[in-house]
Nucleic acid binder design. Structure first.
Length: 152
DNA sequence: CTATATAAAGTGC
DNA sequence: GCACTTTATATAG
């Protein structure tokens, strides 16, 4: 897990198996990114992320520095209201954003989510309840959902 | 599963 | 800004 922060808060959470791959992705997103050993405030952020990955699913209360279009920010804020252990469909999210037919746009915005587990895009499924896709791999999505269901 | 309808983002100009 | 392409969908057959 790689956590990137700015002065304002967490800007990105990357999931992967190799540190090198994560660093490469980070640099791809932020050209001026620097890798430094986890300082005190960063350790807190990472601990919260790890808790989420571990299935605790609680609100970490971290300051997020989300950068995206207005549409994306609205969606990410909405995703934060999804209770752990439950899932919502892309269509339902679209409806809440006043776009009843914009399910695909919701999915696209989810795919652009920069902060992995902190914005629980893994709780978003198809209207028929089946899993659709996940930016960091469908297996991760399945695992996260299984843990959260186990908690609830 | 395949085909179509559909809305929004990404890209190139 | 505009047209075209792509997409983690939804629905009908």
């Amino acid at each position: 897990v790689l956590v990137a922060t700015s002065d304002r808060g967490v800007v990105a959470v990357l999931l992967g198996d190799a540190d090198a791959a994560l660093r490469a992705e980070l640099v791809a997103r932020f050209a001026r990114a620097d890798c430094m050993p986890a300082a005190a405030p960063l350790r807190r952020a990472m601990a919260a992320v790890v808790r989420c990955v571990d299935g605790q699913g609680r609100d970490p209360g971290l300051p997020l520095d989300l950068r995206g279009t207005a549409f994306q920010q609205r969606l990410w804020a909405l995703l934060g209201t999804i209770p752990a252990g439950t899932t919502v469909s892309y269509q339902d999210l679209a409806t809440r954003l006043s776009m009843p037919a914009g399910a695909r746009a919701v999915a696209a915005a989810c795919a652009a989510n920069p902060v992995a587990v902190l914005v629980p895009c893994h709780r978003v499924v198809r209207a028929d309840g089946g899993l659709a896709g996940y930016r960091w791999g469908l297996d991760r999505k399945r695992a996260l959902l299984a843990r959260e269901r186990g908690q609830g």
